[in-house]
């Protein structure tokens, strides 16, 4: 089942000015529910525009956005309601924190939804757990936290709204490797436990390969390819053609194939590579048929 459907979306920045830029060019797309979908593409490929369409921060010049089967712009006055269904975590979300305490800040979204106090309390506790935060942080001022902790608080603030779709723009930007692993791992856990859909926008092919179930590749305002990670990452030439790198490990596998090793071409994680090489090594069918 798909949770998001985009039909013939066009979006132009600076319309009728000399600086007109086509950000989305007749985009048709579905995003599957109950999984993590990665959106990959260069800066200016249209991926940020695409993401902002999903919760109605911007409106397409033409085309329809369906969330859960409903046209989100059917009643333009109620567009803010869609933001309870589509949660959005912007780049560097730590800069949106404002409240006196972490607790209040996380409660901001749920309060705007009009939830009861008990429900809000429950959700706060749930969301900080996904984000790897301890309870004692709740009474602290968000401005006294470290950069990484602030990022998690901001993330928890959106998770606490329990949106059907959680959209994250570069959630791990600027973090160290451990921080990246923790935050992306937490998002994965949140997805698995909540069964909500998650969309992650990122530049890192390695991260996408590690944490996403499906991937969408964008280039020059169009969707170039989409599908399961396996399907997408095995189209190496296409990825290279649109100027994206394949994960380093995929590069190694491709080079091995060029050298006549008969290894499958749909490998995009280190563990996958280890398994494949191991089976080749143990079965001895190394240089088959090339």
């Amino acid at each position: 089942m798909s949770i998001v459907e985009l039909k013939e979306i066009n979006f132009i920045y600076g319309k009728k000015s000399p600086y007109e830029i086509k950000a989305l060019d007749n985009v048709n797309l579905t995003i599957e529910e109950n999984c993590i979908t990665g959106i990959i593409g260069h800066t200016g490929s249209g991926k940020s525009t695409l993401v902002q369409l999903l919760n109605g921060l911007i409106k397409a010049d033409s085309g329809v956005v369906y969330i859960d089967g409903k046209d989100i712009w059917e009643k333009p006055k109620e567009i803010s309601r869609i933001r309870f269904d589509v949660g959005m975590v912007m780049q560097y979300p730590e800069y949106q924190l404002f409240a006196d305490s972490v607790k209040e800040d996380i409660a901001f979204g749920p309060k705007n939804m009009g939830l009861s106090d008990e429900e809000i309390e429950k959700r706060i506790l749930q969301s900080i757990e996904f984000c790897g935060l301890e309870k004692d942080i709740l009474d602290k001022s968000p401005f006294d936290l470290s950069g990484g902790q602030k990022r998690r608080v901001a993330l928890a603030g959106v998770m606490a709204m329990n949106p059907k779709i959680l959209v994250l723009d570069e959630p791990a930007a600027g973090l160290d490797p451990k921080g990246r692993r923790e935050i992306l791992g937490g998002i994965k856990e949140y997805q698995r436990k909540s069964s909500n859909s998650v969309v992650i926008v990122s530049h890192s092919m390695e991260d996408m390969a590690m944490y996403c179930d499906r991937a969408i590749v964008m280039s020059h305002a169009r969707v170039v390819t989409h599908g399961t990670c396996e399907e997408v990452f095995s189209q190496h030439q296409l990825l290279l053609d649109v100027g994206l790198d394949v994960p380093e490990i995929t590069g190694i596998i491709l080079e091995l194939r060029k050298k006549g090793i008969n290894i499958p071409d749909n490998i995009y994680t280190v563990d996958g590579a280890v398994t494949a090489i191991k089976s080749l090594y143990l079965n001895g069918s190394v240089g088959g048929g090339v």
């Binding site: 451990k178 380093e248 490990i249 190694i252 563990d271 280890v274 090489i277 191991k278």
Partner: peptide
């Protein structure tokens, strides 16, 4: 130290250990 290694080294390290 909370860091990582390039995937090529991770691969070789794992191959060394497993095979």
């Amino acid at each position: 130290a909370g860091l990582e290694v390039p995937q090529s080294i991770e691969l070789i390290d794992k191959l060394n250990k497993e095979l």
